[in-house]
Design a protein around this nucleic acid. Structure first.
Lengths: 192, 192
DNA sequence: ACCCTACGAACGAACGTTCGTTTGTGATAG
DNA sequence: CTATCACAAACGAACGTTCGTTCGTAGGGT
């Protein structure tokens, strides 16, 4: 018989859920235990510390976005198409991993200095991918020439990262519609 | 001589600063006391509770944005101009009240249900102003006809609200440049 | 028989908050 | 010009609670 005991991954997933919902400092180990049907102290059979849990969730978020960017770039195509792929990939990551992404975006600053600076570096390199694609589109004349790649990439990522704040899986805007609308918006903002 | 003792407003301002930086649950009353050069217990001469402080800061944020929207609409003009005014006003509020805005945007969810729902209502009515202006621009033909006012307003507000996350007063992007760039971006995204 | 997993008591530290007391300041009265 | 008074601001000890974490123990699956 499967008695369905909890694994380390279960604990990390539940942590992502609670950190996303109530914040890292707003979540206690006893809260987290209750979420899994056990005592707070029992979590230490799976995990070294509370901070360890935050590291695990945030680094998973970083990996997901990095993988998405790599996949988008490998598809190649003109800058406009690459940007569409980046947008679609980002939205996929957000929608399919809402709790991890919310924790990644909002709670990473609660990490200790070491881990935090690594996450910031990962974020910067992800943003760089957008910036390079946009710069390429300006160079080849497909995007408006007065656009600043650095700011435009920040703006588009702002729209993408804010999805976590309003998107609801059961809402009126489904995944395909969201990808289309954001792509239209981003490409319209950049078109010459 | 004035020995500059602390007033209720000083406490609220310091709270905004710390809540913005470390989050509501990441800030203790003793932290806040230290920020003002006194003991945590001394704060209760000025304030009823920690929650009270959060309410004060968040509601100030809500007031600032509401006032900005009212001022922008009073200026009138074509939808494109009105949207520019809304954008400029929003950026002004963010830049001139960074800590209050960061607390308003990130910590409002830590409010008790009553206050939180009032803040959400205020946010919705602020977003409505953007939506109405965008809808007017679509109707009169100045904005692209396939734009959805609801989503476009969310997208533009996403860019505006994310400014808090990357803008630094001492950075390369100053206020005027920021207003220009965001206006260009938003209007380009909407132009037919 | 051996691991995981979970318990549950316990730890010291930190939390928000209360309360009686002290301090400094500005106004008033002599 | 000084003594007195009221009052707000700050102190500092103490409260009950919760925090993250440790540890010895017990039970069930392989």
């Amino acid at each position: 018989m499967v008695t369905a005991r909890n694994t380390r991954q279960d604990v990390i997933e539940a942590a992502g859920r609670l950190f996303a919902e109530k914040g890292y400092h707003g979540t206690s180990m006893r809260d987290l235990g209750r979420e899994l049907g056990l005592l707070g102290s029992s979590l230490y059979a799976h995990v070294e510390s509370k901070q360890d849990l935050l590291v695990e969730v945030v680094e998973e978020g970083a990996r997901l976005f990095q993988a998405s960017a790599s996949a988008a770039i490998e598809e190649g195509g003109a800058p406009g198409q690459q940007l569409s792929h980046l947008i679609a990939g980002h939205i996929g990551v957000v929608i399919d991993n809402l709790d991890v992404v919310r924790t990644y975006l909002n709670e990473a600053r609660m990490l200790d200095a070491d881990h935090r600076s690594r996450v910031i570096a990962a974020r910067d390199s992800y943003e760089q991918v957008f910036r390079i694609v946009i710069a390429a589109g300006i160079s080849d004349g497909s995007f408006r020439s007065n656009a600043d790649p650095k700011l435009e990439s920040i703006f588009i990522l702002s729209v993408l990262n804010a999805i976590e704040r309003w998107y609801r899986p059961t809402g009126a805007v489904n995944r395909d519609r969201l990808v289309d609308e954001v792509s239209d918006f981003g490409l319209a903002a950049l078109r010459r």
